[in-house]
Every structure is written in C-alpha cells, then in structure tokens.
C-alpha cells in the first residue's frame, strides 16, 4: 500500500532559526495525530506536507506527490482546515464553501452543488445563507471543515479543529470527524494541543520535540514500548525485596505517601529492564520472604507518553 506520508531527512529553517531538523517519517493511511509543544515544528511540518513550504533540505512524498515539485497537484488531494479565523468577510456560508471549491479548481456549478451537500453534512444546512460574521465559533469550525471537504479530498489536514469550542461543540466536532473517518475511510492528520482528541481519534501518533520527531508510530505500539512499567504491591519486609529488585536492574518509584504512612503493604511503580519476565517478580519476592499481592502492567495515557518523551520522564 502506498504510504500516506513518506519524507526523509526534511529540514527547514526560517532564516537562522531551524524549525525542523532531519525529520524522517513514514505514515500509513489512516488517522494520525501530531503533538508537540509550541515551537516544536508541528505547523511547519504541516505546511511542508501541504506543499506550502519547500524543505530546505530533504524531501519525500505525500499521497505519492513530491512535496517539492507537485504542490498544486498535492493540494488538490488534500483538504486543509486552518487554525486561524481564515474567513472572507461579508460572504455567506454557502458562498464561502463554494469559493473553497473554486479555489481547488472545481467547476463553478459543481462547487456550488457540493457546497450545499457538505454544509448539510456538517450540520450547517439551516445556516448556509447567513453571513459569516453571524456564525458562532463552533459553527465557524464546522464551516471550515466543510470548506476542507468540498472537493472530496483523500487526506484531511486539521489544524486545531476543536480550538475555542465549548465541551458540547468539541464533542460534536469530534463525532463528525469520527463519523467521516468511519464512513469514508479518509486519512486524517490532526494537529492539536488537546491530547485527549488525538487519543480518541488517531491510530498513529507523531510526537514532535524541538524540530525533530521524538516518537512516531501507532498509539498501541508506543504504549507497548512502555509495557516495561508495572504497578507492584506486596506484603512483607520492604528492604530485602527492594534490594533484590534493584540488584536485578529494576528501578522503583515509590508514591509520595509511602514513607509517611507505615503499612505492612508496600507499593511502587517498577520499571524493568529488557528481557524481564514477570515471573521474576515472584521469584525475587519468594527469596525475600515477601508476597506479591498485585502486579499490573501500567497503562500510560498519551499525556504521560508525551511528557515522558518531551521531558525525559
């Protein structure tokens, strides 16, 4: 299967400031989330994937189109929903979406017909003849989604689609995107600060940090990478068991209340070395006259993963 994105050693600099350094990515079709702190290079990467910026060095393809050579062709295959306000003053909803179709190169009649269809789909059918300055923030986000969908693209680039929405609006927007993915199988690249949105929608994640890709892969695979963490609870003497674990290269992280509350039951977060088998916990506990009462792989959420990747722990 042709990869969605396949870029190699892409670098980009704004004058003396390097925004991206040797970014290589291979993403399969599907849903991809791009996360990173401000200034991590997300928006620059998005603009390179859209063909708006040409890399200073390196190159690659998006949907088989060269990001350096075929920017116009590429943008015909991609629907982009910008983060910025990005509306044309004094236009009506349907005119704005039809304008988007015109700018993608659709025939005028098709653009108008299609504008009505996608506005119905995103739930703005009743508001289509209202001027854009009468739209609420939530409706404007939906409108921008409709404008990105008007030419039926293979890939949607959504930059902060739930930005500024109230909880109900955010849920409705995410539901629309989920429905779209389920119904059409379109690929979506979602760029947001809201990690919960990515966790809900995306199968693949790219974590950007200081202009580089810190981690990339499927969410499940990235979580497997953290399957070396266990929540451990045991009864019996503390010191011998802890010493035995540390001798076996297991690092332990005790909760803050551990020292303050004396208890016969101990618990800690254990990070095990490569090649570790869970049976070894029981073996070491047996030798230390301790009894393991709970051993559970620690499930890391995206937020923890993100902070571990970007802040080291």
């Amino acid at each position: 299967m042709e990869p969605l994105v396949d870029i190699r050693d892409v670098s980009f600099a704004y004058g003396a400031v390097r925004a991206l350094t040797n970014v290589s990515l291979r993403l399969e079709p599907g849903t991809v989330g791009i996360v990173g702190n401000n200034g991590a290079g997300k928006s620059t990467l998005l603009r390179i994937l859209l063909g708006l910026l040409h890399p200073t060095s390196g190159g690659g393809t998006v949907l088989g189109c060269d990001v350096r050579q075929s920017s116009s062709q590429l943008r015909g295959l991609v629907g982009y929903m910008p983060e910025a306000h990005a509306v044309v003053p004094l236009l009506k909803g349907v005119e704005f979406v039809a304008l988007s179709g015109d700018l993608y190169g659709m025939p005028k009649r098709d653009a108008r017909r299609r504008a009505h269809e996608v506005l119905n789909y995103v739930g703005l059918g009743e508001l289509r003849y209202r001027r854009l300055d009468e739209y609420s923030t939530g409706n404007l986000q939906r409108l921008k989604l409709a404008a990105a969908l008007v030419h039926d693209p293979k890939l949607l680039l959504l930059d902060e689609p739930t930005n500024g929405l109230d909880p109900a609006g955010r849920t409705a927007m995410l539901r629309t995107i989920e429905d779209l993915i389920a119904a059409t199988g379109k690929s979506v690249i979602l760029c947001t600060h809201l990690l919960a949105d990515i966790e809900r929608i995306c199968k693949q994640v790219v974590v950007m940090h200081q202009g580089t890709v810190a981690r990339a892969g499927t969410l499940d695979a990235l979580r497997q990478h953290t399957a070396s963490r266990y929540a451990l609870r045991w009864q019996g003497p503390r010191e011998p068991f802890v010493a035995a674990l540390q001798a076996a290269q297991v690092s332990l992280d005790f909760p803050p209340e551990h020292a303050a509350v004396p208890s016969t039951e101990q618990h800690a977060l254990a990070v095990v070395p490569t090649g570790w088998h869970t049976a070894q916990f029981f073996e070491l506990a047996g030798r230390s006259e301790a009894v393991v009462v709970e051993l559970r792989p620690e499930q890391e959420d995206l937020e923890q993963l993100f902070f571990r990747v970007t802040h080291g722990n």
């Binding site: 015909g76 015109d102 190169g105 269809e117 789909y121 059918g125 429905d179």
Partner: peptide, 29 residues
C-alpha cells in the same frame, strides 16, 4: 443530509489541470 456523499462529478467536472485550476482560482478571487 445525515451521511457523507462523495463528489459525483458532472461530465468533465473534475478538478482542472494546473492551468485550468489556476484560472478558476483567479476568477474566484
């Protein structure tokens, strides 16, 4: 209206090539 419909083009209704697409874009602006 509740479901997504792909774009069913009229005859000759595809996105234009680079020249035609650009012309349609300029006219729209």
């Amino acid at each position: 209206a509740a479901h997504y419909h792909p774009w069913k083009t009229n005859p000759g209704g595809k996105l234009g090539g680079p020249l035609l697409g650009a012309w349609r874009g300029v006219a729209a602006v």
